[in-house]
Simulated scan of single mutants.
Amino acid sequence: MSEFRAHFDARVTFANGGGLTAEGFRLDLPTGAESSEEVGRLFVRHLGLAMVDSVTIDGLAIVEEPHKGSRGIEKPAAEAPGRIVDLSHIIHEGLITYPGLPAPVVTPFLTREDSRAKYAAGTEFAMDVITMIGNTGTYLDSPFHRYGDGADLAGLDLATLVDLPAEVFHLTDLATRGIPVGVFLDREVRGRAVLLHTGWDRHFGTPEYLHGAPFLEPAAVEYLVEQGVTLVGIDSLNIDDTESGGERPAHTGLLAAGIHVVEHLTRLGDLPAHGARFTAAPPAVRGFGTFPVRAFATIPGIPN
């Protein structure tokens, strides 16, 4: 395959003062069809120049000759693209996430029509107000949700919310509502996001979602706390049994240990048991314990 190099003179000015000139410079090219602007960018990259204001290329000639090893044109190793799986329910006006809690209400603050009088011709914007409870859609519980002296949303460490190694437990064939401790014993879960795929998300938005939902048994909560997991997520109505009379052992134990809880996930069945990375980061709101997240998982590609 033919290789090409550029021969040229160059003048560089820097945004913080000074300049650089080069005469008769020669540079490897990726294709041989580069414009003078592209040659200028390759020149800057090859020399590792910072704070460049302008690059002028004069006397450009592109000739066929073997490469000499210029920096910045190396072709990266081919890699299959990774995949991103959205694990969040869509929030919309009127959405009932948890029966008995209010649905979101969206109110215009500035309509596109009204904005036309405020901006230049052809420029318009919409600004809206959403009123909703923090327990809407797919959301994360911080310790403050359960404990008045616990970390609120603004106090959470992003390292415990972003790009976590995920262990996904596929439990759709479980014979009981309660998720027992035994399902976790064959895996290393320390420092992981433990995601519980029950399949209950198929009922989301329907009356069936409220009754008979899977939950995490107290012994399993104790085990996950002892093992030092970072986060526990579930695709069910609640990580606790809401039909037990008000006890909330999962929220109590997990949040006391600083383990985040994400509820109302979806599409966990699209994830492998191992290898995915999980992210669920809420906004940093001071004095607030629960808020919707755009939860998602990344599944890495396989190098070719």
Rank of each mutant, 00 (worst) to 15 (best):
S2R: 12
D9R: 00
A10H: 02
N16W: 14
G18L: 14
G19H: 05
L27G: 04
L27D: 04
P30C: 05
P30Q: 04
E38A: 14
V39L: 00
L42W: 03
G48D: 05
A50S: 13
I57A: 01
P76S: 07
A80Y: 11
A80Q: 14
G82R: 06
V85I: 13
D86I: 13
S88I: 08
H89Y: 06
I91M: 10
H92S: 10
G94D: 06
L95T: 10
G100P: 02
G100D: 00
V105D: 07
T107W: 00
L110R: 00
E113P: 08
D114F: 04
A117E: 10
A117L: 04
E124V: 10
M127G: 08
M132G: 01
G134L: 00
G137I: 00
T138L: 00
Y139T: 00
D141P: 06
P143L: 07
H145C: 10
R146K: 14
Y147Q: 02
G148Q: 03
D152P: 05
D157W: 01
L158E: 11
L158K: 11
A159T: 15
T160E: 06
T160F: 05
F169V: 05
L171Q: 03
G178N: 05
I179Y: 08
F184E: 10
L185H: 12
L185V: 13
D186M: 09
R190T: 11
G191M: 03
R192Y: 02
H197L: 10
H197V: 10
T198Y: 02
H203G: 08
G205E: 09
P207W: 07
L210Q: 15
L210E: 15
P214R: 07
F215V: 08
F215W: 12
E226D: 15
G228K: 09
V229W: 13
D235L: 06
D240L: 10
D241W: 07
T242P: 14
G245N: 11
G245R: 09
I259S: 01
V262W: 05
E263L: 10
L271F: 07
P272T: 09
G275Q: 02
A280M: 11
P282W: 06
P283D: 01
P292F: 01
A297N: 07
T298L: 12
I299D: 07
N304W: 14
